[in-house]
């Protein structure tokens, strides 16, 4: 259990650092600024998304595609709850803001899911080549 928590925290810090740096670069290029509330919400969203992705072992029985969809829906629900809480504690989040949050979560998710899809195919091709080589050498 402790090992899993350590692994989760390690992944979360990596994810948050990458997103935070990427956000800073985007802000520099676009000349925009982000608020303290945004930074906190971004961290909570990272925590929720990393948590959901860490549950992948629970979905060993289903296909990776189904797992990706289930995890996306679970992450959407969690983010919805986070935004509702944030909305109640600070300023209310407008509908446009809500859609923006989902968009900025969905786009990287789809890109990463695509990368995962590609990796499965390329890795399988490499493994098949290895099997062929092993079989040929044994003959």
């Amino acid at each position: 259990m402790t090992e899993r928590i350590k692994q989760y925290l390690g992944d979360l810090f990596c994810v948050y650092t990458i997103i935070s740096v990427a956000g800073a670069v985007v802000n520099l290029i676009a000349g925009t600024k982000t608020s303290n509330e945004n930074v906190l919400v971004m961290f909570l969203i990272c925590a929720a998304a990393t948590f959901v992705l860490h549950l992948h072992r629970l979905f060993d029985g289903v296909s990776p595609l189904v797992m990706i969809i289930i995890q996306y829906l679970a992450a959407c629900i969690l983010i919805g709850v986070i935004l509702l809480v944030a909305s109640a504690l600070t300023r209310p989040v407008t509908l446009k803001g809500l859609l923006e949050y989902y968009r900025s979560f969905t786009i990287p998710y789809i890109i990463l899911a695509g990368l995962y899809y590609y990796r499965v195919f390329s890795e399988t091709r490499k493994q098949e080549e290895l099997i062929r080589e092993i079989q040929d050498m044994e003959r």
Partner: peptide, 29 residues
């Protein structure tokens, strides 16, 4: 592995090992 004819993922991203006898086994994630 000496009996594996093909290793192939399906659209669901499940990877299967196909054998000479036509059967297949899923390579778990």
């Amino acid at each position: 592995i000496y009996k594996v004819r093909q290793l192939k993922p399906d659209v669901n991203m499940r990877v299967y090992a196909f054998f000479d006898n036509g059967e297949r086994i899923c390579v778990n994630r």
